[in-house]
Design a protein around this nucleic acid. Sequence first.
DNA 1: TATATTTGACCTAT
DNA 2: ATAGGTCAAATATA
Length: 261
Amino acid sequence: MELNKKQLVETLSRGRNSAKKLQNLLRQKLNDDGLVSVDDLVSEISQSFYCGLLVLNSCDSGELSRVPVSAHLSSACTGNTRRKTPAPNVKGRRGGYKRRKTMDSRTVVSDTIEDGYAWRKYGQKEIMNSNFPRCYFRCTHKQVHGCKALKQVQRFEDDSHMFHIMYFGQHTCQSPNAPSSPEGHDLDSKNFNHHNNLLNCPLTITNNHTAPCLKQEELSNKVSSPTSAQSSSSLDLLWKEILLNEYECFKNDISFDDIIC
DNA sequence: TATATTTGACCTAT
DNA sequence: ATAGGTCAAATATA
């Protein structure tokens, strides 16, 4: 594990440096119209790598802290009082829970919890050694279509803009809001080279020990058309370098659960 | 009124 | 014993 962590630190560092290079390159090449959104996106990429490094470092130092829960994820603490009287004893009516295995799960690092699907929140928990609560969602169409898709969202420790999102199970519903490439459908590893999609893709990690995948999400509304800014072969090379860095993590069989202590 | 959210209680795995 | 995942009553909102 120690060796894996070292490899991960090196890989993330290289990825972050590559993103920085790309950012500098874009600043030279783009006009003012395209600069803002693309620049923001590259900053996010760089920030993602930085977050990963921070998480690793915080694991090493063992630093723990408790800070107030963010209002964004936890509007729970609004002072509203609920259940003035204790709930009746319902022991015996519940049971059958199974702690979920991490297999068949997918992890997404994104700056938004939106993914095009309709989710219904069913729980929230304070997590040990974590500044932010973990929120639990299930598909809104569970009742109608029996859709078993689940989602957990937790904000990153050291960066209030990024979310660690874990998906469990596949969407079996036909949600009208569902994106064309739902998160439940892992892309083939061939798509790793499809750089036209990459500007819009937050980092996705699968736990089923298959090839890494990338996910199309709604960051598309934040960035200008990738094709307009990617004619340069040097840009292609930089993107490939960033993606190869990501791929190396999984070639070495490092799962995200290993990173998040 | 229907649907969604909040949150304490309950349950299982470790 | 504890942490994390889920349930479900109470409450909020459209």
